[in-house]
């Protein structure tokens, strides 16, 4: 087999294998590939720049130290996300000793999926705002969700992890991921409706 050309994009498993064999450049390539996503995730969960940077460093340094333990049954990306989520939640708990940070299953009981705002949106609302404005609106909406909900939403709908991978990363059950994702999506829909509703429409009451 011919050796891979310089321009070939190495796949993740290949980079991990080479990093395990001591090629530091391969690990650096993995860092370059995922640092933006990990930093964004940490920033949204912790909502603090300093904590997010700590999480970013700790996640990649831990991954490097424990590379030999990484079995390769899951993707490296899922693994680094899991480490980053853990570190982020620890930071969050340290900063606010408040019960909203709880990731346990109890958060799912006794809460209805309430829908209050039902209104048609403007056509392509994303085109009505500048990129920065839109980003601010979307990020603000996510950040106003409870940590347990926003973390599930970020992993499933922004990072596009599967339900099982999200459950694994957060150390919660698959049904918990599903019910939190439903709430998170409905809450975000509601928040964005306040922003994006077609002007002049009345809200019609929900049933």
């Amino acid at each position: 087999m011919p050796p891979p050309s310089q321009t070939e994009v190495f796949d993740e498993a290949d980079l991990v294998e080479r990093a395990k064999n001591g090629e530091t450049e391969a690990f650096t390539e993995l860092v370059n590939r995922y640092e933006r996503k990990i930093y964004r995730l940490a920033k949204h969960i912790t909502q603090n720049d300093e904590d997010a940077e700590d999480v970013l460093q700790e996640a990649f340094l831990k991954a490097y130290s424990h590379l030999a333990d990484f079995q390769g049954q899951s993707k490296f990306y899922t693994w680094i996300v899991r480490i980053a989520v853990n570190e982020s939640l620890m930071k969050l708990r340290k900063r606010k000793s408040d019960r909203t940070v709880s990731m346990d299953e109890n958060i799912d009981t006794g809460e209805e999926t309430v829908v209050r705002e039902i209104a048609v949106w403007e056509e392509n609302p994303e085109h009505q705002y500048s990129q920065e404005e839109l980003r601010r609106i979307l990020e603000h909406a996510v950040d106003s969700l409870k940590p347990a909900f926003r973390t599930v939403f970020l992993l499933r709908d922004v990072e596009e992890l599967s339900t099982e991978e999200t459950a694994e990363a957060m150390n919660i059950s698959v049904p918990a991921v599903k019910s939190r994702l439903l709430r998170a999506r409905l809450q975000l829909r509601e928040k964005l409706t306040r922003q994006f509703r077609r002007k002049g429409d009345d809200v019609f009451a929900y049933l």
């Binding site: 933006r36 964004r40 970013l56 979307l138 829909r189």
Partner: peptide, 26 residues
Amino acid sequence: DTTKKTLQVYKGLEPQVIPPEVHNRL
């Protein structure tokens, strides 16, 4: 319809460039 659009706008949201000093310290 609006939940679908909610997911769409978030899927299109690219992560911002990481601040250079954060990358350098990493």
